[in-house]
Write a protein that binds this DNA or RNA. Structure first.
Lengths: 181, 181
DNA sequence: ACGATAACTGTCCGATCGGTCAGTCCTGAC
DNA sequence: GTCAGGACTGACCGATCGGACAGTTATCGT
């Protein structure tokens, strides 16, 4: 073996995450990844079943974390769910900032991916939670706004200290929702 | 001539806008467009110089409108610019909702397009305007949040009456910015 | 020292893409 | 009628993509 297995696998995932976040999933070829890593394209396909498998492995942790949040929020009553949804969503988006950027780059291609099949449904429930499970169109719009605000801000990766960013995402989202603390 | 020129051109643009918004620019082939329109792929390339040219013609009006907003905002003083930026941006995003969706689907591919070369710079100035030209990191974060909130909400095309949507985008954005009316 | 096995690669393949081009078809002016 | 020119198309092209596969290299247990 030229390299230890885990080493090259990790390098491939790291390079792929970088390239997917910069140029999108469709905009990145296996050749591009192989060039960055410094191995052959065939080597990628030795470690991973295919290009899909790389994306799946990259996004699965974020998907599972979102599923956890989804389950947690389901057990809260309506007046407590809003703050929990905001905090959980912001922390999730910050923790998986690079994955969010990948999603942002190629939203349709990545969302229709098997590993993320449950995301649309969970996103819809997250919006419902952000809206305090109200069906008022106005509150649904603001909930969508929070979804987009945190999403794009994290994907944009602004040059701001992490704690300031988190604090402002939380407060800004609550202000958007008209939630008085 | 089988059809009047303008008819087929218009059908091509309409179909392309639809497909680009649904599957992204990269995810839509000339063959896809031709199939929807009901003509040959070669016919598309008779009416347009290339796939790029179709995207350019689709997004140019939105780009020009953004440039107008950019120029208008430049002439306002700091305490007036925030509300003007919010109103102008929301109205722009609503007017070019489908174009926003196209942008959302394939952000890197579309933004590096010649016709939209000035957009990143204008977007940056728009963020500055939304932040009241303050350099406070907290205000910059909230400005980015508004940018994303309106962007994603318009791209998502929620099933809400147009006037309610506009009203909530405006009020929600101002609340996000902590702007007391 | 030496197979067995895992790690890795060069090369080829079919599919699909955007784009070109010679040629056909139709229409309207004369 | 006819003919010039715009509208349109089928067939083809080179490039690039994800992927398959036989073969080579390096490592380790014995």
């Amino acid at each position: 073996m030229a390299r230890s297995t885990s080493t090259l696998r990790g390098q491939i995932l790291e390079a792929a995450l970088d390239l997917f976040a910069t140029h999108g999933y469709r905009g990145t070829s296996l050749h591009d990844i192989a060039t960055v890593v410094g191995c052959s394209k065939a080597s990628l396909l030795y470690h991973f079943a295919g290009k899909d498998a790389i994306l799946t492995e990259l996004l699965s942790p974020a998907g599972e974390a979102l599923a956890e949040l989804d389950a947690d929020l389901a057990e809260l009553d309506d007046d407590r769910v809003v703050e929990a949804a905001v905090t959980g969503y912001v922390d999730l988006a910050l923790r998986f900032r690079r994955e969010v950027t990948v999603l942002f780059q190629d939203i349709t291609e990545t969302l229709c991916h098997p590993a993320l099949a449950h995301v649309p449904g969970m996103a819809e429930r997250l919006v419902a939670s952000l809206a305090g499970r109200s069906t008022d169109p106005k509150r649904l719009v603001t909930a969508h706004m929070v979804l987009g605000a945190v999403f794009v801000t994290c994907a944009g990766d602004p040059d701001v200290p992490a704690d300031v960013l988190r604090e402002e995402l939380l407060h800004g989202s609550l202000r958007t929702l008209g939630h008085t603390t």
